[in-house]
């Protein structure tokens, strides 16, 4: 279970939010709302451990995530505004690097299946740089299928995806939540993320 205790983040001289507390149980989704510049990305990066919060703590299973460091990283997938892909490598090579660094090996077959279910059956051997924006996004989203992490932190995951892609990602999120996973996401697009336990967080209003 993820606990956010009294979190305060500062960007430059500006305080983005303070005294932010919430908890996220297994099998629930947190939808973070807020205008541009209200600190959504900073919040997500702070939870992932990429940004050091000014005050407060992120706790995972009752322990501070910063202390758990590598054990916490094993439980989490963070997807930011960048694709996080090496454009000179093929989709398969990119995904294999992620898997190996996460401590498991994946077969060519399982990558092929994951890419196929992302609608990228023919892009297996192509360097990522020749793919379109939406296809690149799909390659990076394929990690969600390959890596069994419990907490997904998705920053604007629907950007660059077409209609089919959006509904496919929604399906993946629903399945993950139904399996007892946790998802934190931000989006400006009108998408109904109707799943079991849905929480909303509005930034910039308190």
């Amino acid at each position: 279970m993820l606990n956010i205790v009294n979190l305060e983040c500062v960007r430059g001289d500006r305080q983005l939010f303070s005294g932010l507390s919430f908890s996220l149980e297994e099998g629930s989704l947190l939808h973070v709302h807020g205008a541009n510049g209200s600190g959504k990305t900073t919040l997500l990066r702070a939870i992932a451990g990429l940004v050091l919060p000014e005050d407060g703590a992120v706790e995972w299973g009752g322990k501070p995530a910063r202390k758990l460091s590598e054990d916490f990283n094993r439980e989490l997938i963070y997807m930011g505004h960048h694709y996080g892909l090496k454009f000179e490598l093929t989709a398969y090579e990119n995904l294999r690097v992620f898997a190996r660094l996460s401590g498991f090996d994946i077969s060519e077959r399982s990558v092929e299946l994951a890419l196929k279910s992302m609608g990228l059956a023919r892009c297996f051997e192509l360097p990522v740089k020749v793919l379109s924006q939406g296809q690149k996004k799909r390659v990076s989203l394929a990690r969600l299928l390959l890596q069994r992490s419990r907490l997904w932190i998705l920053d604007e995951p629907f950007v660059a995806l077409d209609v089919a892609g959006v509904s496919m990602l929604l399906e993946m999120i629903k399945e993950h939540v139904a399996d007892g996973g946790m998802v934190i996401l931000t989006t400006h697009q009108e998408v109904d993320v109707e799943v079991g336990k849905l929480q909303h967080l509005h930034l910039g209003e308190h």
Partner: peptide
């Protein structure tokens, strides 16, 4: 620049090793 560095930071490996 392409965001792979932050992903490397988030892998369950000691960063010094990477």
């Amino acid at each position: 620049n392409d965001g792979t560095l932050e992903q490397l930071l988030l892998t369950p490996q000691p960063l010094a090793l990477i």
